[in-house]
Amino acid sequence: MNIIISNVSETPIYQQLKNQIKEAILTGEIQDGELLPSIRNLANETRVSVLTTRRAYDELEEEGFIKTVHGKGTFAISNNLELLKEARLRQVEEKLLEAYQIGKAIGVTKDDMQTMMNILYDENGGS
């Protein structure tokens, strides 16, 4: 697992950790049941505090992406496809809302937004 932390990002460090681990689980880079680094090891690898790493793991566990088994470690959970799909749909909704807000602020019309989306789909082999 290759996690890159940016100290100049507006995104909090725990959120960067959480997002990258979640993405690795969603894309299959981290397989269902795979053992994740311990909180201490991940903190050392990424050079962040143990508290920051714990917060990322705690939130991932609350969202159902990982499971900690005391004495054994923390494991990825990717077998709940509906949960994973819902998480991805939330990400899409958040990004679309952000695009809408930016577009609205500069006067982009609904038709222009739909045209841009159609172009993106056409250019990237979507349907």
Rank of each mutant, 00 (worst) to 15 (best):
V92I: 15
K95T: 13
R55S: 03
Q20P: 03
F75W: 06
I77P: 02
G28R: 07
E98N: 08
L84R: 10
I5T: 05
E82V: 04
K110D: 14
K104H: 08
T53M: 03
D58E: 12
R88I: 11
L120C: 07
K22N: 02
A43G: 00
F75Q: 07
N7H: 04
L84T: 00
T53L: 02
Q20I: 01
S9L: 03
I21L: 10
E82T: 04
S78M: 11
M117Q: 06
N19H: 05
E61N: 14
G103M: 01
Q101L: 15
E93L: 14
S38I: 04
G28A: 09
T46M: 13
S78H: 09
I106R: 04
F65A: 01
R54M: 05
L35T: 10
R47G: 02
Y57T: 01
T46S: 13
G64V: 00
G28M: 03
V48Y: 00
G71W: 11
E63A: 10
I4K: 08
Q16I: 02
Q20F: 01
T74C: 07
L89W: 15
N19R: 09
N41Q: 15
E82F: 07
T53A: 04
K110P: 06
I77K: 12
V48M: 00
G126L: 14
P12A: 02
A76N: 07
Y121G: 07
K18P: 01
S6A: 02
I102L: 15
N44G: 02
L35G: 06
Q91R: 15
E123M: 14
Y100W: 11
A24S: 09
M117A: 11
I102W: 14
I102D: 14
F65E: 02
Y14Q: 06
K18N: 02
T11R: 02
Q101N: 15
S9Y: 06
K85Y: 09
T46Q: 11
Q31D: 15
E23M: 05
I39D: 09
V92R: 07
K67T: 06
E34S: 12
R47C: 03
K72I: 05
A99P: 04
A56G: 00
I5P: 10
K67L: 08
R40Y: 14
L89H: 11
A56S: 02
L89A: 07
E123S: 13
L84H: 12
K67D: 06
E23Q: 06
D122L: 13
I30D: 04
T27E: 13
I77E: 14
E34Y: 12
T115L: 08
Q15A: 01
A105P: 10
V92K: 11
A76L: 11
E86H: 07
Q31T: 15
K18Y: 08
G64Q: 00
S38C: 05
E34M: 14
V108A: 07
D112A: 14
H70P: 13
I4A: 03
G71P: 09
S38G: 09
N7Y: 02
E10G: 12
K67M: 08
L97G: 08
T27C: 13
G126C: 07
I25P: 03
I39N: 12
I106M: 10
A99R: 08
E98T: 09
I106L: 03
I5W: 01
V108S: 06
L120V: 12
R55K: 11
P37D: 09
E123I: 13
L36H: 01
K22E: 03
D111K: 05
E63Q: 10
S49L: 03
A76G: 12
Y14L: 01
T109A: 02
M117R: 10
